[in-house]
Design a protein around this nucleic acid. Structure first.
Lengths: 156, 156
DNA sequence: CCGTTATCTTGAACTGGTCAAATCAAGACC
DNA sequence: GGTCTTGATTTGACCAGTTCAAGATAACGG
């Protein structure tokens, strides 16, 4: 399976190394992993892998467009391999679980700001906040209180 | 001017203190200030104000819904007083400037995820990334490279 | 196989933010 | 107005996540 990644790395001008193959493999298994999870999981394939190596690999992958970095407010950065397919994220306020969502109804047009205020916009990033199925079932669980629940983007 | 804020604080059950009035005043002047800016500016009104006090005040304001915390990926948190009006943000990739945008065309419906995957969604947060007018004029300026430019939410 | 150069390792450091104990002052009550 | 109670602030240490820097290592072209 690892051989799958090598051509992709070469295609974007990156050398094929064990740390990179390990990280890519972990990302394939864990679609929204944070750096720490990646380090721990990748060590199954490459036991001596250092955290800094992972940061370096992730930075390279993100810079070349092989991975995407997402940073939900208040949580460590997450990384995913799905790039360029115009999808967004659902984030659980309680457990931090992240799920992918394809672009909202009507696709792109609804993501054009009404007034761009002179900005040259190249991307619209959408995060849906809520509770995942599991956390809805256990209502007395910890819920983040550092952010007011009804923020600007509240629906209806 | 400061007397304007006192009733608001009392209305949400917070004591009226000088640090809080100072922070509110600064937020009114700087619509998207980070904690550091707030500390520096607020010291014009309250010279002995400590950073921790500001964090405490901001936490209280956000928890009571008087302020909102926004965290553009890769930048320190910003705070604003506009709450509950369903607006979003334009962020400049180069200088970090933030501008408000009223809800996108068509309002709420377009912010309903096509498939919520069982999540109970209570908010949709939208960030438009691009270059502000000023940074478009000076193209050779520093631009963030830690994130691939064409990410999932890319327009069109 | 060798050399060049990107990449990884090791270690320290930095930023933004939080936690905890002691002091202080806002507001209720008299 | 004075006193008290409790919430708020100060002061200081501390933490997580991430980045930086120097030297060792390994990928890949020749």
């Amino acid at each position: 399976m690892e051989t799958t990644w090598a051509p992709l790395l070469r295609a974007v001008g990156l050398r094929v190394t064990r740390p990179r193959l390990s990280v890519l493999s972990v990302l394939a298994d864990h679609p929204h992993a944070d750096a720490d999870t990646i380090v721990l999981s990748a060590r199954a394939l490459h036991p001596t892998l250092s955290p800094q190596a992972v940061y370096g690999v992730l930075k390279a992958l993100v810079a070349r467009g092989l991975a995407r970095r997402i940073e939900p407010a208040g949580a460590p950065a997450l990384f995913e391999l799905r790039v360029g397919d115009n999808h967004h994220h659902l984030v659980c306020r309680s457990c931090g679980a992240v799920a992918d969502v394809d672009c909202a109804v009507g696709a792109a047009p609804c993501l054009t700001p009404a007034d761009a205020a002179g900005y040259a916009v190249d991307e619209a990033e959408v995060v849906f906040w809520g509770l995942c199925r599991q956390c809805q079932a256990t209502p007395d669980q910890f819920v983040r209180t550092d952010q007011h629940v009804l923020r600007g983007g509240a629906i209806a």
